[in-house]
Structure formats: C-alpha cells, structure tokens
Amino acid sequence: MSTVADTSILARRGGLAGRLSDLFWRKPGILLLLMLTPPLLWLGIIYLGSLIALLLQSFFSIDDFSGLINYEFTLSTYRQLLIPSNFDIILRTVVMAVMVTLASAVIAFPIAYYAARYARGKWKVIFYLGVMLPLWSSYLVKIYAWKLILAKEGILTWFLAKLHLLWLLDAWLALPVVGGSSLSISYTGTFIVFIYVWMPFMILPIQAALERVPGNLIEASADLGGNPAQTFRFVLFPLALPGIIAGSIFTFSLTLGDYIIPQIIGSSRLFIGQAVYAQQGTAGNIPLAAAFSVVPIVIMGLYLWMAKRQGAFDAL
C-alpha cells in the first residue's frame, strides 16, 4: 500500500494545468471571473446591448417628410401611442391578455387539482407528460391544427352539423365584436387559439401550489361544516392563488407579445405584437415600434412587481 512518497507536501504538477489549478485554489475569484465572463459578455453585450439600444430609439422620432430618424430626444413618439388608433391596439391586447389569463386559469385548475390530489403512480406520469408534450410541441403546428379545426369546411363545422347545432355557430358569428364571417377570422378564434397555446403554462405552477396544500386542510374545512363550494372559496382558492398568479405571468406575458396567432387566426385588427412588426417592417418607423415594445415591458414590470408582493415566485 505504500505507493506514495513519504513526504507531507507533494510537488506541484508540471505544466500549465498544474499552475492554473493551484491559482484557482489560491484565488477562487479568478475562476469565478473566468466562468462568468463568457455568459455575461454574451448576454450583456449581445442581448442587453441590443435591448437598450432599441429602447433608446423610442425617445427619437421619425421625420414625417423624409421618413428618416431624427436623433433628438423627444417624447413625441410616446405621445403617438395615445392617439386613438394606437391606443385601441394597446387596449385590445391588454383586454385579450386578461381574458385569456382568466379562461386559462379556469380550464387549468381542474387538471392541476386532479394531478396534485388524486393522480398517483402511473397516472401522475401520464398527467405530467400529458401537460408537458402539448406545452413543448411546436407552436406553429398548434396554430396550424386550429386552422384545420376552425376552417369553414373543417371539423368544428362538421361536428356541429352532425349535432344539428349549426344555428348556434351562426348566431354566435352574427354577434358584434366577437363574431365574423368565420371562426378563423374572428376574435373568438384568436381567443381560443391563445388559450390553447398558452394555457399549459398555467397548469404546472397551480399544481405545484396545490401539492403544498395538506390534504387534511380540506377535510378540516368539511369537518367544520363547509360545503364543497365554501371549501373551494375559503380554503383551496386562497392557497392556490400564488400558483395561479405565477402561471398568469406566462399566459399574460406571452399573449401580450404574440403577433403570429392574431395574424393567422383573427380579424384584421392589430395587436401590440403586430403593430411592432408592422412599424419596424413595412412602415420603417423604428422609434414607434420601439415605443410599442416598451408597453408590454412596462405592463409586465408592474405585473411582476405585484406578483412578487403576492409571493407568487415561490410557486414558480
């Protein structure tokens, strides 16, 4: 067993590796710096740099005659956001994001509740993958699937016709605002697809929050005479709320910034994402596009600040 020399301090290994290794031990700060430099350079310069440069452009304006950017500090671009046609876009997007978030919470809750409290063993895995696979499957394919479903000649029309309920669809489409000539070019269609694409992000945080609720709390409430509705209202819902808020951060933010769903399934009226896309692309008005981008950032900033005060980040 005596294979090691009988000294108490061994010589440093030769070469650069030995010297570097000793240096990392003596000065751990150097190793930390070496580890942090590449990601910080990448994210700090490429990402943050571009982001800040973009946001700064929102304080410039565009010359109406030449179409060139006027590099002088001004708030006039922000004032443009308030003109009715632009403000309508912001309002429409925020209302849609709120509706999508509320509807997602309602649909997600039973799934999360079942997975957290009743699913065991094999069913737990099935529920988990049953949420993860749609969540991760292709964004465009999901939209495409709904294009197939909502199309006039598609499965929904066929299904309603079989049930002799086409009159119901026609009545809905005849409604103002939510209606249209077909579901795939109406707000209703946009709303459904938004829910479909972003709702899975709501399930896991709610499930995580519910899993932390001890089962005997529900029994205690029933024991004290609470009926199921009261138990839900006074026990379950308040305890799940941080999870709902955590999930709503995703559904709300993702809906706010999306520009592809309303472009493919929806009416011709714009959402914020589309406005940004149009302003920077065809209109070439980078300052206004930048100002539009600031809107979801500010809204999300406020939202995150409120969510943090509710303790939602523990449920993420």
């Binding site: 910034g257 994402g273 981008s293």
Partner: peptide
C-alpha cells in the same frame, strides 16, 4: 420572460 418579438426586433 420578455415577449420574443422584443428580443427579435432588438
């Protein structure tokens, strides 16, 4: 965390 369109346009 920020909408993809903001990253993209930036």
């Amino acid at each position: 965390a920020l909408p993809g369109i903001i990253t993209g346009i930036a």
